[in-house]
Write a protein that binds this DNA or RNA. Structure first.
Lengths: 193, 193, 193, 193
DNA sequence: GATGAATGAGATTTCATTCAT
DNA sequence: GATGAATGAAATCTCATTCAT
C-alpha cells in the first residue's frame, strides 16, 4: 500500500475511534485494531497518539471550513447567510467525527494544548474576518468582533454538545433557524434594506 | 482537624489542581501534595479520584447559581438582567477554579459522563425556566426555549474558554456588555416599555 | 467494661467476622464495626490482626477438644467411639465459627504460619495419643499412628469443607455414621478374591 | 520468544511462586522477578493475578488426573489400586507446585471461590464415579459415595498438608501403604468382640 | 481506657512507546 | 515497510497500624 494511503487509512480509523471514545478513553490499540495494522506500523506514520489526534483535529477544521461559501454581494444576502449557518451546523453536527472532539481536546499535555490553542486561534481569526467583512457590507452590527466571534462559536457548539450529551441532538435545520432568528434580531441588521 | 474541615480543605485543593491541570493530567498525588496530607487521608474522605471530581463539580454549580438574583418585576428590568449576566460571567470566569472544568468533564468514564449530563440537564432546566418566565413578562422573544437556553450557555462559556486558552480572558464587564448588546437586539424586546 | 469482657467481646466479633469472610477478606474495620468499638480500642487488646486471629484459632481448638469424652474401658466401647466421632463432627461443622478457619489459616505470614503449625502439631499429638491408647485397648489396628492421626483429621475436615463449598454440608449424623462405617470396616472389600 | 513459550514460562514461574508463598503473600512482582520479564509482559499474557492463579490451578488439576490409570478388570485389582493411590499421592506431594495450592485457594474473591468450587466439584465427581465403578466390580463397600469421595480426598490431602507444615512430608510410598491398609481393612477392629 | 483521624508502604494494573526480526 | 512482543514509568487504591487528644 502507498504510504499516503496507509496514512489516510490510519487517520480515518483514528478519527472514528476518537469520535466514539474521546481522546483519553481511546487507545492506540483501538486505532490499530480498527485499521487492522500492527502497532509498529502506526508509529511509522505518526510520532505519537497526540500527533495523530492533532492531525485528526486539522482534518476536522478543514472539513468545517470547506463548506463555507463566501458571501457574494451581488446576490440576496440573507439567503447566503442562512445557507452558511446551516452548512456549518451540519458540518459540526456530523456524526462521523467532528463532534466531541471540540470539547475533548483540552488537558492532554502541553503540546496538545498548544494544538488546541492554535486550532481555536485560527478559527477565531476566520470568523472575525468574516464578521468584519460583514460590517463593511453593513450587515453586521458594532461590537468587539473578536469577542463576538467567540460568542458565535459557542452559540453553535454548545447546543450540539449538550444535545449529544442529552441524546436529543437538534436537527441542523432546527438549530440553524433558531440561530438565524437570534442573530438577525440583534447582530445582523439592515438585511431588508 | 475536624473531618468537615479536612474534607473542605481537600475539596479546595482538588478544585485548584483540577482547575490548573484538568481532570486527566491531575493526579491524586497532586491533590494530596497541595493539601499536605498523606495518600490514605485522601481516601478517608473521598472514594476515588472521580468522586472528588464530582464533588468539585457540584460545588462549582452551587457557586454559579448562588450569584443569580431573581428578577423583581417592580424594579427596572434592564438593570437586573445586566446585573445577572455580569454576575454569572464573573462566576464562570473566576480564576479560582470554575473554569476549564466546564469543558474537562467529558470522557472520564460512564459515571463521570452521567454526572456531567446531570449537571447540564439541571443547568439547562434552570435557564429555560428563567427564559419562560421572561417571556411571560414580555421581555423574551419567541423560540424554542430549550435550544435557546443551550445557546445562551455557549454564548457565555465559549468566550471564557477561548479567552483562557489564548491567555486573554475577557473581563466580566466587557463580556457582559457585549452579551447584553447581542441579546438585547434580538432576544430581549420591549425593555423600553 | 471490665478488660476481660472487652477482650471477649472483641474475640467474639473477630471470630464471627473471620468465620464469615475468612482471614484475608476480613478487615480490622469489620471487626471493630461488629464490636462497636473504636480502632484504637482494638489495638489496646490485641497486638495485630494476626494476633487476634491466633487467639480465635486457640478458642476454636479448645471448643473442639472440650467435647471429647475419654473412653471408659468399663463401658461398651463402640458406643463411646461413635459418640466422640459424632461430637467432634458436630463441633467442626458448627456454623458459629469453626469452619473455613481450618483452611484459611495458611499463608498469612511467618508467625501466622507458625501458629497454624502449632495448632496442627498439638491437634495431631492429641489424636495420636488417643489412637495409641486405643491400640493398648486392642481397639485400634496397627500402623504409623502419626500418619493415621493426620488421615483421620482429613477424613473429618474435607467432607465438611467441601460440603460448605458446595452448599450441601452433611449433617453431623450422616457424616459420623459414614465415618464410623469406613473406620470400622474399611472401604475396599474382597480384593483377595 | 514465542507467545506460547512465554506463557508457559510465566505459568511455571507463577506456579512456583504460589507454591512457595501461597496466593496472598505472592505478588505479581515475585512472579515477574522469577520469570525475568517486565511487569507489562505479565499483563500481556494474563488478565490479572487471579487469572494466572486460576490457570495454575487448572494445570495442577490436569497433572493430578493425568497420572490415574483406569482399572483393568482382567488384571489383579489390588496391585492396580495400590498403584493408583501411590501415583495420586505422588502427584499431590510433588514438590514442584501442586501442594499448598489445594488449601490456599479459598477466600480470594467471589470468582476465585467459584473456581475452587468448580475444581472440587469436578474432582468429587470423578472420584465418585470411580467408586461406583468399583462397587459394580464388587471391590468397594456400600455407603454414600459422594460423601465417601470427599472423605478420600481428605485422607490424601491432610497428611500431605500437615506433613508440609511440619516439615516432615510422608514419602508417597509410606502414605500410599498406610492409606491402602486403612481402606482395605478399616482402622477400628474387634469392637464387636 | 477509649477514640478515630492520619499515615504510608505496598499492591495491582494500564498503555504509549520501542526495537529486533 | 511491517510486525508484535517487550517494556516500565506512573497511576490508583487498600488497609493494618499509630498516636495525640
Amino acid at each position: 500500500m502507498e504510504p499516503e494511503d496507509r496514512r489516510s487509512q490510519l487517520l480515518d480509523s483514528a478519527r472514528q475511534v476518537f469520535a466514539e471514545k474521546g481522546y483519553h478513553r481511546a487507545s492506540v490499540a483501538d486505532i490499530i485494531r480498527e485499521a487492522g495494522v500492527a502497532r509498529g506500523t502506526f508509529y511509522n506514520y505518526f510520532e505519537s497518539k497526540r500527533a495523530v489526534f492533532q492531525a485528526v483535529l486539522e482534518g476536522i477544521m478543514d472539513d468545517i471550513w470547506s463548506v463555507v461559501v463566501p458571501i457574494d454581494v451581488g446576490q440576496p444576502i440573507e439567503a447566503q447567510v442562512r445557507l452558511n449557518i446551516a452548512r456549518i451546523v451540519e458540518a459540526v453536527v456530523d456524526p462521523a467525527a467532528s463532534r466531541l472532539l471540540l470539547t475533548e481536546a483540552v488537558g492532554i499535555d502541553a503540546e496538545g494544548d498548544a494544538a488546541v490553542r492554535d486550532f481555536y486561534a485560527r478559527a477565531t481569526d476566520r470568523v472575525q474576518l468574516a464578521l468584519v467583512r460583514g460590517q463593511r457590507m453593513g450587515v453586521v452590527a458594532d461590537g468587539d468582533m473578536r469577542l463576538v466571534a467567540r460568542c458565535l462559536m459557542g452559540l453553535v457548539k454548545e447546543p450540539v454538545f449538550q444535545g449529544r450529551l442529552a441524546g436529543e441532538a437538534p436537527t441542523p435545520k432546527e438549530l440553524a433557524d433558531e440561530l438565524f432568528r437570534l442573530l438577525s434580531g440583534g447582530l445582523l441588521v439592515g438585511l431588508k434594506g
